[in-house]
Each structure stands twice: as C-alpha cells, then as structure tokens.
Simulated scan of single mutants.
Amino acid sequence: MPAYNAGKYILEAVNSVLQQSYTCLELVIVNDGSTDDTAYKLESISDSRVKVFHQKNAGQCAAANKAYSLSSGSLIKFFDADDVLSPHFIASQVATLNGQFNAIAFGSWGRFYNDDLNTFKLEKNWITTNDVPFNWLIASMSKSQVMLQCGLWLIPRHILDNAGLWNEELSLINDFEFMIRVLLCADELRFSDNAILYYRSGIKGSLSSTTSAKAALSAYDSVNLGTQYLLQRCNTSYVRQIVANHFKSLVYSFYPIHKELTSLAEKRIAELGGTSLPYPAGGYTKILSTLLGWKTVKLIKQKLNIL
C-alpha cells in the first residue's frame, strides 16, 4: 500500500485489510513523504501483520515498488490507501486460485461518493467470466475505458517478477500500462464472486483528478505503452480500432488544455486507421456538440469555468 497524504482515509483502508476473513497476510505500507497526518495515523496501528516504511516523496509507483521489495508473500495485492475491500475479498481470491500460480484472480467493483459507503453502486457492465488475459482485455476495452485498478487483482509473485514492477516514470493512469503488462504474463484470469472493491470517487486533489502537463504526458505514455503490448499480441483492424478509441478518449479529456498531446494522440489515431468514438456528452452539451462541434463546446466550457 503506497500512501501519500492519505491521513483522512488510510485507517479505513487498512482496517478493511486487517478485518479480512483470510488472516494469513502481511500489509506493507510505504508512506511516500506525506505532509499531512498520515505518519501519525500509521503510528496508531498495533497489528503485528503491518509493516510501515517512511521515505522521501518519490511517487506512487516508486512507493509501490518499495512496498513490494519489503514483502514476503507468494500472492500479492497492490491496494490504494483510500479504497475499501469487502470482508471476504482475499479469502475468495485465494480460493479461486486454488494453488494455481499461473493465474490471476480478480473481483468486482463499484464507486462510492462523498466518503459514504451507502452511495456504493456495483458496476454492472463488468466482465466477470474466466478467460485468457488478452481476450478478457479486448472484450473489456471494446465498450468503454477498461477498469484496471490495482486492488482488484491477486497476483502470484512469480508473475510480477516476470512482468516487471511499476513504471516509475508514470503517474496518471499508471495502472493501465502496469496491469496490461502483468495480466498478459498470466495464463488465465479467474473471477472471484465474493470479492468486491469499494472504489472511492470524487476526491478533490487525488492523483486521478490531476490535469498538469506532467500528468497528461503520463496518461499518454501509459496508454501508448499499454496498447502496444496488445498490438504486439494481435494487430488486427479490430484491435487497432479499440486502441484508437483509447487515444480518442485522451483527446476528449485533454483538449484544449494540452494541445500538443492531443495532436500526438490524433496522429496516433490516424496511424491506427481512425476511430468513430463519439464525444461523451448528454443533454445540452450533446446538442451543442452536434451543432458547433465538440472542440468548440469544450472551448466554451473552459471559458465559462475561467469566468
């Protein structure tokens, strides 16, 4: 568990791990140079299964890699310091693997808002069938942006050793590149029915909400690297279309703030053969996009936000 300025949430996340029905576990937490009360909150934990390491701020990926280096388990879960696991999450995934270390177990997930678990809704459009990793990834990516949040997966250690650890050059959507690379090193993905990840959403200032130039470049690089792994496996027109759609989503997200990156993404889309992915909008925005074009609408909305 990498942790940076997670004082508000970290004990809830930690308790969701320590209160698992599966008790034979260790929790390695790396405090990545937090400037809030994260360190103080970690000092209050008395469970002997918890190991805490403090380091200067080096980024989420570096902290996750450090935590891995300090761990000893044969099965590994990377887990964010602001999410919550259902009580039987780990037990269900261990049972699903059943000693077969050539597979990776995954669970289901949903979002909750305003720090209120009562707002939780299970994601219904989530593929829950066992499959080979490439087929599962392509099926999951064909409808929308795939969810590759690290807490969903229980990964045998030797698969991580073969795949390599987190890319420390990345920050925003770093899990996209990492999880595709890791999943493709397994023989099978196995769904665990009783494993639910409660994904905290809408946190102001969270890593996923960052729109700096550095974060935008990380998002582009992560998508570029992750999709390259897929194209190396299968470079059909169908796969290229799915890859192009993910670059188009970057264009929609970062225009007009990061025009150079959107130009790079549009060039990549052209190389892949183009995409017909529509601008994600509803209501008046959808009507205006039809009349004026989505770029004009985004420019207008940006001006209004500034004003």
Rank of each mutant, 00 (worst) to 15 (best):
N135K: 15
N135I: 14
N135C: 08
N135F: 11
W136P: 00
W136T: 05
L137Y: 01
A139V: 03
A139H: 13
A139P: 02
A139F: 05
A139D: 15
S140R: 09
S140E: 10
S140V: 11
S140W: 03
S140K: 09
M141G: 02
S142K: 03
S142P: 03
S142G: 06
S142T: 05
K143M: 09
Q145I: 13
V146E: 01
V146D: 00
V146Y: 03
M147T: 12
M147L: 12
L148Q: 03
L148P: 01
L148R: 06
Q149T: 15
C150G: 02
C150L: 13
C150E: 07
G151D: 02
L152M: 11
L152F: 07
L152H: 08
L152P: 01
W153D: 02
W153A: 10
I155G: 07
P156D: 11
R157A: 10
H158K: 10
I159F: 06
I159H: 12
I159G: 08
I159L: 14
I159C: 08
L160E: 09
L160M: 12
L160G: 04
L160S: 13
N162Y: 04
N162H: 10
N162F: 03
N162S: 13
A163G: 14
G164T: 15
G164I: 10
L165W: 11
L165C: 11
L165K: 06
W166L: 03
N167V: 04
N167Q: 11
E168V: 02
S171P: 00
S171H: 11
S171E: 07
L172V: 05
L172E: 03
I173Y: 14
I173A: 10
I173E: 09
N174C: 13
N174L: 10
N174I: 10
D175V: 04
D175E: 15
D175C: 05
E177I: 01
E177R: 00
M179G: 02
I180F: 04
R181K: 15
R181E: 08
R181P: 03
R181Q: 12
V182Q: 04
V182A: 01
V182F: 04
L183T: 01
L184T: 13
L184V: 12
A186L: 07
A186V: 03
A186S: 15
A186G: 05
D187N: 14
D187P: 00
D187R: 02
L189Q: 10
L189T: 13
R190C: 12
F191A: 05
S192G: 08
S192A: 14
S192C: 09
S192I: 00
N194L: 02
A195Y: 07
Y198F: 15
Y198W: 11
Y199I: 07
R200Q: 15
R200W: 02
G202R: 04
G202I: 12
G202M: 13
G202F: 14
I203G: 03
I203F: 07
K204G: 05
G205M: 13
G205A: 10
G205H: 09
S206E: 14
S206M: 09
L207H: 01
S208L: 13
T210C: 07
T211A: 08
T211V: 04
T211P: 00
